[in-house]
């Protein structure tokens, strides 16, 4: 088996010389996000219903002033139960295999390098929810060797194709926000109540927050936004008249690690 795979790899290697040269011409011309386009276009991940929500670039504003630990827990539970996120810590007590799409951390961990030295007690201890930033210039998409993770052309959501992912975890090394998780083992035994409307994953693939693309497609807001009691605002960053843009115009909001040039679509009012 090992032997045949090695032979397989060798043949594959020779053939790639030809394939690679061709794709270079096609692939190098457009930027990384355009290169990711065809994957999104040929195979829509979630088919839009007539009442689907649309945007050019979905974004989120998190108002930490309106959040407490209980609300954060509710958001996390809503997200993780809807998306069949396994609970490896609760089930097996294994922190190494942890999978999380949204969770809360302290200010200093959410914003390393931006920590304010004499922070108010409220901010010092306030839970800060963190999740995939759905960056406008996502380094994970640039790193993925199969385009299994890509930025969706129509609305900027960074998505995963669980069936294409080879589990090399390059995207996890590339993500500066620790937003991605890897299925170190079969997730299914660690899912309490499986939601039949969302796929479960298999071992060996990467997963992360998808901005509830499956809910937007049927006209619903993301689960965490619904569970946030108004602390989370979700909308089109490209529409100057959207609620989210009005909020950003009124309040000073920061983003995580803006110096890295990834242009996160998640903003924080602290």
């Amino acid at each position: 088996m090992e032997n045949s795979r090695r032979r397989f790899l060798k043949t594959a290697g020779f053939s790639i010389l030809g394939v690679g040269a061709g794709s270079m011409l096609i692939g190098l011309a457009p930027g990384p996000s355009e290169a990711a386009g065809p994957a999104a276009e040929t195979k829509p991940v979630f088919v839009d219903r007539p009442d689907a929500k649309h945007a050019r670039r979905w974004g989120m504003v998190i108002d930490t002033r309106g959040l407490d630990a209980r609300t954060c827990r509710k958001m996390e539970e809503a997200c993780h139960s809807i998306h069949n996120v396994p609970d490896h810590i609760g089930k097996f007590g294994n922190k190494n295999h942890e999978i999380k799409w949204i969770w809360d951390t302290e200010f200093k961990h959410a914003f390393p390098g931006q920590e304010a030295e004499f922070l108010s007690d409220r901010l010092e201890n306030a839970p800060v929810p963190v999740l995939c930033n759905h960056c406008d210039n996502p380094p994970c998409v640039r790193a993925c060797p199969t385009r299994a993770t890509f930025k969706r052309e129509k609305d900027g959501i960074v998505l995963m194709d669980f069936h294409r992912c080879i589990g090399c975890r390059f995207c996890m090394a590339a993500c500066p926000f620790g937003a991605r998780s890897f299925n170190f083992r079969d997730p299914r035994p660690a899912i309490e109540d499986e939601n039949p409307e969302f796929p479960t994953r298999m071992k060996g693939v990467v997963e992360k927050c998808n901005f509830c693309a499956e809910r937007l497609a049927v006209g619903k807001m993301p689960a965490c936004v619904e569970a946030s009691g108004g602390a989370l605002t979700f909308g089109d960053l490209n529409d100057p008249d959207s609620d989210i843009r009005k909020l950003l115009a009124d309040e000073y909001a920061i983003r995580r690690k803006p110096n890295l040039g990834t242009f996160p679509s998640v903003f924080y009012i602290v």
Partner: peptide, 22 residues
Amino acid sequence: DLGQPMRLLNVIFYPTPNSMLF
């Protein structure tokens, strides 16, 4: 090191020059 070694050939089926792994 691959989580899904059976899908190794995806690197060839979907050649991605912006990835250093390619």
